Structure formats: structure tokens, C-alpha cells
Amino acid sequence: MPTPLEITPSLSIDEDEIAWRAVRASGPGGQHVNKTSTAVELRFDVAASPSLPEDVKQRLIALAGSRATQEGVLVLFAQNSRSQEMNRQDALARLVDLIRQAAHRPKARRPTRPTYASKLKRLEGKTRRAGVKSMRGRPRGED
């Protein structure tokens, strides 16, 4: 039986929705890097996930950016540690963090209108500025 991975108190995903693959890490590390597969690739199919509401799926794919494929699969790569288990935990923590951010519904912007006093103040400032600029011109002679 798959254990649910709790994201928020009202949102969780099953661990069997996550696909893992161990790969060789890149970069320095000598012989250890060459012979062990310590890096981890996490794949989570956002589009086909039954655990996430539709609005969360859309925000998650938008947040993921280039880490999401055209098919809606989120791919996270972790290779910071020499331990495969620590890389798995790191990738899982990053996935949970991304889903938490996506689960947060942004506050809708309500358009506001300027007050009458602020309109008058703006127009008064424009008039004052126009007066200053008009004094900079060439003096008009009354010939």
C-alpha cells in the first residue's frame, strides 16, 4: 500500500506517483563519481496526478518552468550529496516545496480608482510645473 506524502494538511500525494531513477553524477569526485550512481532523477507526472486539483496543477507547471516537459511531467535532478539517499531526500523536499508554493492561491487584485482629492493634487502639480517651464522660454518682447 502506497504511503501518502503530506504536502499541506488538506493536500497529499501518493509516493507511487513519483518515479525515481539513479544516474551517475557529473563533476569532480574522482573514482567514486565514475563507479557509483549517486545522483537521483525524480519524475512526477503533474498532468495525470489524481491527487492535485486542476488549479494547483496549472500553477505547479508554471512554477516549474523548464523543469516541466511538454507532457506535464516535472523532472527534478539532485546530485549535491555523495549519498543517493540524501539526494532522494533533497529532491523530495524540493518537490514538496514546489507543490506547497503552487497550492497557495494568489490573492486576486481588485482594481482601485484614484480619489477626487488625488486627481486635483495631480492636476495642480501639472499646472505648477507648466508655469515653471513656461518661464524658461525666450522672453517675449512687447514691441
Rank of each mutant, 00 (worst) to 15 (best):
S66K: 13
G72N: 01
Q58W: 01
F77K: 13
V73C: 04
F77Q: 09
S83Q: 11
R43Y: 06
K57F: 01
V73E: 08
L42V: 01
Q58D: 13
L76W: 05
L60K: 03
L52D: 06
Q58L: 14
D45L: 02
Q84V: 02
K57P: 04
L74C: 07
F44W: 15
A62S: 15
P50F: 04
Q58Y: 02
V56I: 14
R88K: 13
R67G: 04
V46M: 07
I61W: 00
D90S: 15
A78M: 07
D90V: 09
A47Y: 01
A48N: 11
T69Y: 06
Q79I: 03
T69Q: 02
Q79K: 12
E85K: 02
A47S: 14
E71M: 02
V46P: 06
Q84Y: 04
L74R: 01
Q89V: 02
V75C: 04
R88H: 12
Q58S: 15
D55Y: 08
V56M: 05
R88A: 08
A78C: 09
K57V: 05
A68K: 07
E41N: 02
V75S: 01
E41M: 12
V75L: 08
F44C: 12
S81E: 13
R82Y: 07
A39D: 07
A62D: 14
V56Y: 04
F44N: 14
A39V: 10
S81T: 10
L60Y: 10
P53F: 15
T69K: 00
L42G: 05
D90A: 15
S49G: 15
V46K: 04
Q70W: 10
A78L: 08
Q84L: 07
F44T: 11
S81D: 13
M86Q: 14
A62V: 10
R59C: 03
S49F: 07
A47W: 00
V40F: 08
S81N: 15
L42W: 06
R43K: 14
D90L: 15
V46W: 01
A68R: 08
S49I: 14
R82H: 09
D55K: 06
E54K: 08
G72Q: 05
M86P: 07
Q84W: 07
A47P: 06
Q84P: 08
D45C: 11
S66I: 12
L76P: 00
L42S: 02
N80H: 11
L74W: 03
F77Y: 12
V40M: 13
M86A: 15
A47T: 10
L52Q: 09
S51L: 09
Q79D: 12
D45Y: 06
I61R: 10
V56K: 03
R67N: 12
F77M: 09
E85R: 03
Q70S: 14
K57H: 02
A68C: 14
R88D: 07
N87T: 07
L60M: 10
L63P: 00
E71V: 00
E71H: 01
L52F: 06
A39W: 11
D45I: 03
A62I: 06
L42D: 05
